[in-house]
Every structure is written in structure tokens, then in C-alpha cells.
């Protein structure tokens, strides 16, 4: 089932299926997942543990190849079944940003360096990357913590830094796996609203895996996963919430 929204496509999956094992031990973790997320959209992916959310996220994040189906980022076919059509590491670096549940910062770098490294890996000169990293941290309200080590940041600050890093190379897709699980409700909402703003300001397609029912109003669409299948929650489908 494909759900279309206004604007250019950021990410599209076609009949995405992932099977682990074979024969008697075969487990279908995801079956025929069809999702279309356009630029500027923020969508939620709900579902109980073991429903296949992480499998879907790692597949579209180009970390864990699907068994069959296709993944398109922008207009480009990236995965055709398990076969990569592009250099995955380069593609991840330039097109995809990741934010995860627990702190996903490099522990031996400070906040600014965590953002800067993403851009330097993409070939940006160190001075420019540093400048841009400070800008991003400023946008996310943590510029004053730029030179602090990871362990000196609160959970919310760490998530903001992670978002800044995810946005560093202006990706077309932002993937977040339970980014508010470690945060209190106020911070959780702040982070979700941050995604909303990122989608709007940077034109990225954002997919957020979450259990947090309190923040669903932030999303343009909500998908639910159960036994490896994705369903849309029709009531939540609507135009992008760009305001």
C-alpha cells in the first residue's frame, strides 16, 4: 500500500520484504512494505516490539539490505532486492541522516566535532565544516554546549546534537529510531517539533519510529507496523503540516 503526499518524493519503498533464515527457521520480518515520504513530510511508524520497525528502518537506512523489493531515494533506485545500485556508504553519508533512541554520538568527540565530522567525511574543508557545525548547533539551541564533551550534555542536548549531525550534509532523508525514548515528555515534544521544523526548513523526508502516542499530532502521517506489514492510519493522513 503506497501513501502519496504533495511535493517531490524523498524516499519510496516498493514491496520491501526481509526474510531472515531459511527453511524451517525462516522468519519474515517485513513483508511488502510500500511507503512514500515526500520532501518536507514527517511520518511516524508505530508498532509493538518485534513488528519489524527496526528492520524497515535499517533497510531504508541502507544498513541492512532487503531480501526483495526496491528502495528509491529521491528519484534514484538505490536497492533492487539485496543488490545495491550505488555505493551505500557514500550514499548514507550524503543522503541520509540518523538519530537514534540512545545517545548516538561519538564519545571521544565534543558536540561541535560530532557535527563537524559528518561534513568533513563528505569532503568539506575543516574550517567550513566547523563554521557550519556551529551554525547548526545554534539553530538547535545548543551552541553554548558546542565545546562540551558528550558526557557533559543532558539527554535532550545530546539528541539535538545528534539531529544537528544528521542534518549536517543536508540529507534528503532523516531516520529516527525512538528518539524520545530516553527523554521526558517535555523534551520529547521538543525533539519531535524539531523534526517538524527540520523537515520544513531543510526539505527532508523524515521517518520517526516511536512508541510515544502523546506526540502523534506533530506528524503528517502515521503508519503502523504489525507482523512485518505496514498499514497507514487513515485518520492521520493529510497534507504536510508546514505551519
Amino acid at each position: 500500500m503506497a501513501v502519496e503526499m504533495a511535493g517531490e518524493p524523498a524516499i519510496e519503498t516498493r514491496d520491501l520484504t526481509k526474510v531472515y533464515g531459511s527453511g524451517n527457521t525462516e522468519v519474515v520480518a517485513m513483508r511488502d512494505a510500500n511507503v512514500l515520504v515526500r520532501k518536507g513530510e514527517v511520518v511516524a511508524l508505530l508498532g509493538p516490539s518485534g513488528s519489524g520497525k527496526s528492520t524497515f528502518l535499517t533497510a531504508v537506512g541502507l544498513i541492512n539490505p532487503p531480501t526483495s523489493g526496491q528502495i528509491l531515494i529521491g528519484d534514484q533506485l538505490v536497492m533492487d532486492g539485496p543488490q545495491a545500485q550505488v555505493n551505500l556508504r557514500t550514499f548514507r553519508r550524503t543522503q541520509i541522516g540518523y538519530v537514534f533512541q540512545k545517545s548516538n554520538l561519538i564519545t571521544f568527540l565534543n558536540a561541535r566535532e560530532n557535527v563537524q565530522i559528518a561534513m568533513e567525511l563528505d569532503g568539506m574543508p575543516s574550517r567550513d565544516a566547523r563554521h557550519r557545525a556551529l551554525e547548526l548547533l545554534g539553530e538547535l539551541g545548543v551552541a553554548d554546549r558546542a565545546e562540551h564533551g558528550v558526557s557533559m550534555l543532558s539527554g535532550g542536548q545530546q539528541q539535538r546534537v545528534a539531529v544537528a549531525r544528521a542534518l549536517a550534509n543536508s540529507p534528503s532523508v532523516l531516520l529516527a529510531d525512538e528518539p524520545t525514548a530516553a527523554l521526558d515528555s517535555r523534551l520529547g515534544r521538543q525533539v519531535m517539533e524539531l523534526f517538524r521544523r527540520v523537515a520544513r526548513d531543510h526539505g527532508a523526508g523524515v521517518i520517526v519510529v516511536t512508541h510515544d502516542q502523546r506526540t502523534l499530532d506533530v506528524f503528517d502521517a502515521v503508519y503502523e507496523m504489525e507482523d512485518g506489514r505496514i498499514h497507514a492510519q487513515p485518520a492521520d493522513i493529510g497534507p504536510p503540516k508546514n505551519s
Binding site: 544498513i63 548514507r92 553519508r93 550524503t94 559528518a118
Partner: peptide, 18 residues
Amino acid sequence: DKLYSIALLKLIGAPNRV
């Protein structure tokens, strides 16, 4: 001690030479 950071570097696209 830094396997997690290395995995993260790979995730954000760091090439093997890095």
C-alpha cells in the same frame, strides 16, 4: 573501547580508510 563509535562512523558513511 570505541567499537560503538566506529560503528557510528561507518553508519554516517566514514570510509574504511578513515
